[in-house]
Design a protein around this nucleic acid. Structure first.
Lengths: 192, 192
DNA sequence: TTCCTTTCTTAAACTAGTTCAATGAACGGG
DNA sequence: CCCGTTCATTGAACTAGTTTAAGAAAGGAA
């Protein structure tokens, strides 16, 4: 049952069987139907979740009501608003399931217990946040320096399963173009 | 001499006089002339620096040779490639002074010593990286959801001193527009 | 000062992407 | 099974931003 998440974590640190036990005992299983909001703007994020199954979207709504998808999370990704979770301050983001989803979650309390009992987990979370930072930096650079068709190609490299799974306007809101223009891009690329 | 950096750090944690002493003893003062590269793509970043005086630019050069300015750092900002520094892996970024600059730097060694002797500094660095993440997220959202003139206005809010200090094409490469279009934006805004 | 170099501005022609509106495809509910 | 809804496609008219090229300002070195 916990094979995936254990595999994910042991890429960063080694765990004894006892430690694996302690870890998985602290996880809460959360099963959520599609189209459910796990976090809304203004709320304080109380979870860090590992996606066992399903698909999630993290997005921001700007002053004009325009949605910007910051990232997706599918199987084997972690999802949270890290800043809101750590500093226990209101989030600017929405987090929403796009499919029926199964998560393993840590709350501030269980995460603290985990770090007390197995301090080397600090490393796991530091690596997660650094990866997050690097990914975001790359995304920013690409957004600024590349045209939409190139960004689309990189997108499907990063999330190969997403185009089959979610509505096209979510992809548009990730790429920062109109849904119509995603159609145009696809037609052009198919033509080659 | 170290008043600024102490003030910066004590916004996150309290320090006794002894601890302040330990901290500042571990800092290396680095004086760098303008137009000097502190880090180039492919190198491993060996510093985290606090800007005591001067102005620095962090940028990325993409496949087509186009430069994208990721951020600036002026007085009271920290500067580093966090991912490269922590994981001791090659950087994708360039870091360059735009003015004669005075930095207080930590190396991997001195940072480790600092954390051993005053573990509560962990908190300072965790907050730095989280702020970095939040700032980057906001920047991405703005880049995607706003037009260039709005982005320009937010830019001068974030870095009020920069337009007077650096060439306009650096601002253009931060905003993701051509230098000519920055001219156009300025003319339009001045006209109001 | 003068000259040279670097940066900034302006305008005209162009390209990337948007908006609007209409049509078409896919899907779930009764 | 049909019907309503939601999403994707297409095209035409439009807007934001680029490119190129030329000239004007500004700054530094001799």
């Amino acid at each position: 049952m916990y094979a995936n998440i254990i595999h994910n974590v042991t890429k960063c640190i080694n765990l004894t069987n006892d430690e694996k036990q302690v870890f998985t005992n602290l996880l809460k299983v959360k099963t959520v139907p599609a189209k459910t909001k796990l976090l809304e703007e203004g709320e304080i994020c109380q979870f860090e979740g590992y996606v066992q199954k399903g698909c999630i979207r993290i997005y921001y709504v700007n002053e004009n009501g325009l949605e910007v998808t910051v990232s997706f999370a599918v199987e084997d990704w972690w999802v949270s608003d890290i800043a809101s979770f750590h500093e226990q301050k209101p989030s600017r983001l929405y987090i929403e399931t796009l499919e029926d989803t199964e998560l393993y979650v840590l709350t501030p309390t269980t995460k603290e217990k985990l770090l007390q009992q197995i301090p080397k987990f600090e490393r796991v979370f530091r690596i997660l946040i650094q990866r997050n930072l690097t990914a975001l930096q790359n995304r920013l650079i690409n957004t600024i320096s590349q045209k939409a068709p190139e960004r689309y190609l990189e997108f499907i490299q990063l999330y190969p399963s997403i185009p089959q799974r979610v509505a096209q306007y979510y992809i548009a809101s990730y790429l920062g173009v109109s849904p119509e223009f995603v159609s145009t891009i696809r037609k052009r690329l198919a033509g080659k």
